[in-house]
Design a protein around this nucleic acid. Sequence first.
DNA 1: CTGAAAGCGCTTACAG
DNA 2: CTGAAAGCGCTTACAG
Lengths: 375, 375
Amino acid sequence: MTNARYSQPPNQLMLAYTVNKLDAAMTTRKAKRVGEPASEPFYGSVTIETVAQMAGVSISTVSRVLSGTVTVSAQKMRAVEAAAAKLGYVPSAVAQGLASGRTKTIGVVTQSIDSPYYGAMLRGIEDELDLMGYVPMFLSGRWDAKEEAKCIDILRSRRVDGLIILSGRIDNSALTSCAAAMPTVVTGRTLSAPGLFSIDVDNFSGGLEATQFLIESGHRRIAFIAGDPEHTDANERQRGYRAALDAVGIVYEPKLVVQGDFHESSGLRAVDELMVRRTRFTAIFAANDQMICGAALGLHRHGLRVPDDISLVGYDDLPGSQYMLPPLTTVRQPGVAVGRHAAAAVVQLLAGETPSAVVLSPMLIARESTRRLAR
Amino acid sequence: MTNARYSQPPNQLMLAYTVNKLDAAMTTRKAKRVGEPASEPFYGSVTIETVAQMAGVSISTVSRVLSGTVTVSAQKMRAVEAAAAKLGYVPSAVAQGLASGRTKTIGVVTQSIDSPYYGAMLRGIEDELDLMGYVPMFLSGRWDAKEEAKCIDILRSRRVDGLIILSGRIDNSALTSCAAAMPTVVTGRTLSAPGLFSIDVDNFSGGLEATQFLIESGHRRIAFIAGDPEHTDANERQRGYRAALDAVGIVYEPKLVVQGDFHESSGLRAVDELMVRRTRFTAIFAANDQMICGAALGLHRHGLRVPDDISLVGYDDLPGSQYMLPPLTTVRQPGVAVGRHAAAAVVQLLAGETPSAVVLSPMLIARESTRRLAR
DNA sequence: CTGAAAGCGCTTACAG
DNA sequence: CTGAAAGCGCTTACAG
């Protein structure tokens, strides 16, 4: 029950664009069965055999010139290339995958397919993989450990050559056994195991720097909106916040800390909560930009101005953060670079090499949402 | 040269999570070659044959119980299920794809993997496809027709069962021939061809409504920031803007229209340009939220306040738009719904059904970036 | 340099 | 209900 209705004669007129070759090679399967003459003309898929026949060589030779691995006589080479072009032949990656044991695809598990935060990493992965001749397969775990495990299973059944897990709620032991089965790169945590490579950005120092910047600007009562505690990044940033306070002898005040979940709405709620608590503060540092964005709206609702009344520092430097009003002071995460490194690392792992550990540091970007306090 | 170093004994201890089954089934291929005894124990991939042997049935039977298509005696069924579970067997989607001619995956071509606009659609596609038992394969055309054609070729070689193209710069004729080869759904344009289904949101009426809203609020000098003219949506929105003006007899003034490209930076530049032109205006309508966001910053730079001095209306209602300062009045695009419908439509096409045309209408969301002008 | 053949891991008529 | 066998479209030793 394949799509017989999509079959067309291979000699159809070719139009513009590469994609027009679609006309010639269909996904339709040959109707040929036992006993039918192989020479019977049929409408449908042009395979390596079709090309071989037209070029007058064996399928081995076709395979060789197309893969370019082995030397083939110039004459046969030309014949094969001409036939392939004429027929609009596109090799089946499915068949290649089964035969070679390599699918040339890398599974990528993200938390969400539409998150501005992971988006940068996805782009980095896409760019780098493209360069290396691999294709990414993006699946999202939807911020849920179970869903994430399901994604990994799907990717495994698809026989991807390697895996990249962005953050991930999967626990370390599961990840380790995952890496034992196929080259795996994980971001957002530091972990060492055979077949595994981890890329982490120093979230602690990011949190530290952001808080120090505020302290150096004269702020002492700095509220903190925490991120999802399920993610190490969130906890590390909070640890940085606290360390900065400790370093200069400011006592840590639980009343200044509100639990968030990385989404805008929680930032908005956090400000309300802060108001209810009636604690004085001159600045807010949030574990990510999305929450500080919500907080900004919250302050606006309470008639507070940024940075005149309250200074704001975020984390991530999302694409939109430079267009916030006022443009946001934040800690830049090298998202695209993380993605590129992750992709480069799986490919290296695949080649049996050991990726060299890279240190990706966050960087404070001072813009206009913070102001220096008069002492 | 496959990853022999990833092989492990199949009888290894199982840990928590489904993904731990990874321990048992590797991507490693059997080393077995001609002449080697088949019964020799090997480390590596557990295949359907392994399961069949353990369950004491033929591979046909294993295939049948796992696919659940045919009735199998309860006893063999249990034996197979037990063996499969014990071995942590995960069928190879690659082999299934080759044998069945269906890969159960839908290729999705987007303009960008990290765009907030396409993000909603991607999520809708993901959700719907998941429900239907299909897996999406996202690739991005990077706002470039050539790249887009390349994506389609990749997807075609991967033998995806169907295709979803979000907007897309590919031309209609190429799209038509694409649809002739495999079920195709395209968004952002209206086009009819065999095997093709298109889903379009009424961008004209969206542009019309937005402009009318401004006019009804007393604005007459309304600037417009146009989107990328390569995309029909952009042009349709502009047509709506103009029609609204015409309807009430406001003359269309080219000086009030600035060309943008859908990105924030172009919105910022547009405001500068407007200032240079020294044209008076009390409101700006932009062809998308990202540009109005840039425009808001531009106005801020010029000391203009929103909505006191200038009212702002965007288009799309991105996730972040309700958190803009002030929260943005905009035309909501049903992105997730578009994605869901697109996914449902390919699946219907695949089943030989004709998807019913749906009319997805944009909807004006009035928030705080606009104000009523005293007449 | 080149072809015949085995094999990749499944599905699916076919014939009990 | 069930098994043997052909076939999916390639790659890759193997033997010239």
